[in-house]
Simulated scan of single mutants.
Amino acid sequence: MHPSNGGPCQGIRNAIPYFQKAGITTEVVCMDDKRSNYPVTDDFTIYKVGSGKTSYQYQPELLKWLKNNILNYDFVIVHGLWQYHNYAVYKTIKLLKKQNLKIPKVIIMPHGMLDPYFQKATDRKWKALRNELVWSLIEKKCISQANVVFYTCEEEMRLAATTFKSYSPKKVFNVGYGVQIPPENKESLKEDFYKIYPEIKNKKYLLFLSRIHEKKGVDLLINAYNELFQKNKDLPDLVIAGPTTSDYAQQMILLASNNPKIHFSGMLTGNAKWGAFYNCEAYLLPSHQENFGIAIVEAMACKKPVLITKNVNIWSEIYEGGGGWIVNLEEKNELKNTLLKIINQSEDELTDKGLNAFKTYQNKFDIETCANKFIETLNNI
């Protein structure tokens, strides 16, 4: 549940206030270190059972916790696949069924982890083989036993059915996914961002805000921006916001080291994050695969146009709403040419596109609407 772990953690935090409003008590069990602290304050209960071992995150304390506590709940929602937590729920439910007890209903949310990209990407051959093995031994059983599988958008649900031949869930639903309305745009938000990264003060900039990971296309973005910079030194600056401790992030810092207009701000949270969104010209995420992209929708909620790729599962909703630019990464130079198009647009054109993005957020990705749909679906399974 540490915010640095990406979208699902934030998605849970976005939805819980609306579950509480509907009279639903929600608690979270996770495999974070029991002594770990988060840079955010949560008003719901989080049980930390300890970090797991290996990339599979094996943690026997989770199984013990589930056996002792799972009957306290009406529903168990499993977020993500390919790690021990999914098998632990499966094993616990299997044991309880033998005792003829009233067991909670199990919902699995893959969060894009059944996307065929992960089995087809050329740099994931060994991981794809591992997934095939784990699928045949564990995950297909978990999917088949669950009462229902929830997806965050139509494209995710469609793609998930194409990845493994033995995919056979009992039921599937698109329940949507949303983000909360951001805080009102005030001068204090901007100042909080400038306190963290004063180098960007009073400059126009484009914003990448996400994990700095191979999947996110950060290298493609830096290379395209560097090419444009060679011909035009007056570009808006480029701010890359995300944790910089990984080896890949350090490689990206090196890749950008000769360009004084590329800035790495580190991870942004709270007011500083919203300040970065509100004051950028546009938000950029040229990802190789994105199930939903919470940061994309957060930018849209701040009335900012977004550049994404056709590998982001909500691209068609954004395209239809006119709130951004959709790049096909298979087309050479399309990312660079789209960046140039953004740079050459007037302030009025960017403002209009940002308003379109905000309308799409209101119509498709408002958290209250999505949370209500989620609750309604729960009540009917």
Results as ranks from 00 to 15, higher is better:
183 P>A: 11
150 F>I: 08
84 Y>R: 02
149 V>I: 15
130 R>S: 03
113 M>E: 14
143 I>Q: 00
92 T>Q: 12
88 A>T: 10
112 G>K: 10
158 R>K: 14
194 Y>I: 09
105 K>D: 03
144 S>I: 00
202 N>L: 07
189 L>Y: 11
148 V>I: 11
94 K>N: 13
162 T>Y: 11
101 L>Q: 13
182 P>V: 10
190 K>C: 12
198 P>E: 00
126 W>L: 09
86 N>R: 12
138 I>M: 08
162 T>S: 11
200 I>P: 01
96 L>T: 06
208 F>V: 03
160 A>D: 12
116 P>I: 09
120 K>P: 01
132 E>V: 08
87 Y>K: 06
194 Y>G: 09
148 V>E: 01
143 I>M: 01
169 P>V: 03
99 Q>P: 10
104 P>A: 08
177 Y>M: 15
159 L>H: 08
106 V>Q: 00
208 F>N: 03
122 T>I: 07
178 G>K: 01
190 K>W: 04
108 I>F: 02
175 V>H: 02
90 Y>W: 14
174 N>E: 07
170 K>F: 12
195 K>F: 12
175 V>G: 02
212 I>L: 04
118 F>P: 02
83 Q>G: 04
139 E>M: 04
145 Q>W: 00
154 E>H: 12
95 L>I: 11
206 L>P: 05
175 V>F: 01
156 E>T: 10
204 K>W: 05
147 N>I: 00
207 L>W: 00
83 Q>L: 11
141 K>P: 01
206 L>I: 11
145 Q>S: 07
132 E>P: 00
88 A>S: 15
153 C>F: 02
126 W>C: 03
186 K>H: 09
199 E>H: 13
85 H>L: 13
97 K>R: 13
86 N>V: 15
202 N>Q: 14
178 G>Q: 06
206 L>G: 08
113 M>F: 06
113 M>N: 08
144 S>H: 06
152 T>C: 08
108 I>T: 05
197 Y>P: 03
166 S>C: 07
100 N>I: 11
186 K>F: 10
185 N>M: 12
105 K>S: 12
140 K>F: 05
195 K>Q: 15
130 R>N: 03
171 K>Y: 04
113 M>S: 15
176 G>W: 01
155 E>R: 08
160 A>G: 12
178 G>C: 05
120 K>G: 09
79 H>F: 04
190 K>Q: 15
203 K>D: 09
202 N>A: 13
204 K>T: 11
185 N>Q: 12
110 P>N: 11
176 G>V: 02
104 P>H: 04
155 E>N: 12
171 K>E: 06
189 L>S: 06
190 K>H: 11
128 A>R: 03
119 Q>H: 08
181 I>T: 14
131 N>E: 03
130 R>T: 02
207 L>N: 02
120 K>R: 14
129 L>Y: 07
97 K>V: 06
79 H>T: 10
107 I>S: 05
145 Q>M: 10
96 L>Y: 10
159 L>T: 09
107 I>H: 00
93 I>C: 09
191 E>K: 15
147 N>D: 01
149 V>R: 00
152 T>K: 01
97 K>I: 08
171 K>T: 06
122 T>F: 06
122 T>A: 14
93 I>L: 14
108 I>C: 06
78 V>N: 01
86 N>A: 15
160 A>L: 07
136 S>A: 11
181 I>E: 12
198 P>G: 10
110 P>V: 13
213 H>F: 12
208 F>Y: 15
190 K>M: 12
